[in-house]
Computed example of a mutant assay.
Amino acid sequence: MPEHEERKQRRLDARSLRGLAHPLRMQLLDALRQRGPATASQLAQQLGESSGATSYHLRQLAEHGFVEDAPERGKGRERWWQAVDQSIRFDSTDFEEASPEVRGLTEVFLQESAARHARELASWLGTRDRWSPAWSRAGDMSDMTLRLTPGLAAELIGKVHALIDGYRDRVPDKDTPESEQVRVHTHLFPIETD
């Protein structure tokens, strides 16, 4: 699939969650999304894992439709993998009546997602002096507190996601000076104030 072509968003369900809710699988999928197609050996080296482990977990991801062969890359016995979707949507309402096993998997997925966000932010903070001053000024680490109802919170999240999606059509060519892949994290959750 051409790099500029938009990939669809995948909404998690109980079956797909069984295939994804594992820390290494989530890391493999993230690596393929962010860095593009790779072999199990390349991913093993990037993630500090054995190629046997990455091969096994890539096959599990493929079985659940998260990754697929990248046929234009493979030569001989070398198998290249690529992500099928560019983003995942987790909707907690899909799991409200789930079995204890599936609820446990949702916890693994959410905790690993939160840990990944923390790792990415820490990595940016640790390397921000290596970036141009323009990129240092363009980064953001904000927090805000509002008083909202669940309905207003859902509306706000929808508007933020729509705003971000509006930038997908404005993607600069890879050769555009200073264009870089960026990560946008959003978190909205209630806090106790007593």
Rank of each mutant, 00 (worst) to 15 (best):
V108G: 00
D91G: 05
A122M: 08
T127P: 02
S50W: 07
R119P: 00
T106G: 06
Q46A: 15
H57Y: 15
S123H: 13
R89F: 09
P133L: 03
P100D: 01
G126D: 13
E72S: 14
H64F: 15
P133C: 06
R59Y: 12
V67C: 10
R79D: 04
W124K: 05
S55W: 09
T106M: 10
E107R: 03
A134Y: 08
W124A: 14
S50A: 12
Q111D: 10
S132L: 13
S113I: 01
V84T: 14
S113V: 05
W124N: 12
W81V: 10
Q46E: 15
S87V: 06
R89L: 13
E112S: 00
Q82T: 13
R116G: 11
E96V: 11
G74S: 15
G126E: 14
K75G: 05
G76D: 07
F95D: 01
D94R: 15
D91V: 11
L61S: 06
L110Y: 02
E72R: 14
R79W: 07
E107S: 03
R128W: 02
R59K: 14
H64T: 11
T106V: 05
A98E: 01
R73K: 13
E63F: 12
W131V: 07
L61E: 04
T127I: 04
T54L: 03
E101Q: 00
V84Q: 15
E72D: 14
V67Y: 05
E63G: 15
E49M: 14
P100Q: 00
R128D: 07
W131F: 15
